[in-house]
Amino acid sequence: MAQMTMIQAINDAMRVEMERDENVIVLGEDVGVNGGVFRATDGLQKQFGENRSIDTPLAESGIVGTAVAMAALGMRPIAEIQFGGFIYEAMDAVCTQAARLRFRTGGRFNCPLVIRMPYGGGAKTPEMHSDSFEALFLHTPGLKVVVPSNPYDAKGLLISAIRDNDPVIFYENMPLYRSVKQEVPEGAYTVPIGKANVVKEGNDVTVIAYGNMVRLSQQAIEAVEKERGVSIELIDLRTISPLDMDTIFESVDKTGRVVIVHEAVRTGGVGAEIIARINEERILKLEAPCVRVTAPDTPYPPTLIEDKWLPTKGRIAAGIKKVLDF
């Protein structure tokens, strides 16, 4: 096994799948010759040629829109959006076309398309690059949404996404690209879509997070466990849509206390959906109102303010204490 960063694991997943299936192609801005601005597709053009690792014209709607048709006609395209903040330019292609093709055609067509994009705060990008828009896709029936939190999951989930028969939004957290290295198996393996990961078991509180917030939550949990002598469970969602409610309910039944952490803005977010479902199915199991630790409801802030705006270890710890002290 090799030690890999998340960006290497993502690159490896694409390589492995492109070797396995010649219908797998990658397309996007600067993905070919340049290997992507983050180098996610580095070396793929060299290995698979210009027709499989493709530099497209600069147009997100064109990238995803053409990929929708290719997917319907038997290809397995991986469309890269250079930064997730630019996905609005392709929103019709994603949310009304890719997401609904199966539905509109009574199952005649499907859309096995992966749309990869970097997202997430802390990378010091200029404005409009770093937003967390996962809730928009959660709100769109027909899409799956995957957010890996580490290199191992990233590779396994991306391979699952490429093999999935429905469109998958593959959300890659920018600060995670190069910050952690992990053992990643060679060759193909899958991590199932729709299955959360219990990172750490515990009895008193359930903390639910994904992406970069998993790491931060882990740190907060360690601090509170030490301070309070409690045990806290940490769930890494891994998939935002479909949500793995079985794993969440099982944990809630045990702890009765829930904190949800996301770096997206609060209103209408993933946290809101999870709390709604907990209320619908498990309200009597709750010992305290569920707490959300999120960014406030503003557009993504200017670079130098982002660290104050994003959830911190301290704010997550405060959220955990709030449900403990209720």
């Binding site: 503003t298 200017p302 303010i305």
Partner: peptide, 12 residues
């Protein structure tokens, strides 16, 4: 000053 979160909230 680099700015505060409460300040940017004024401009939404």
């Amino acid at each position: 000053p680099i700015g505060e979160v409460e300040e940017i909230m004024e401009y939404v």
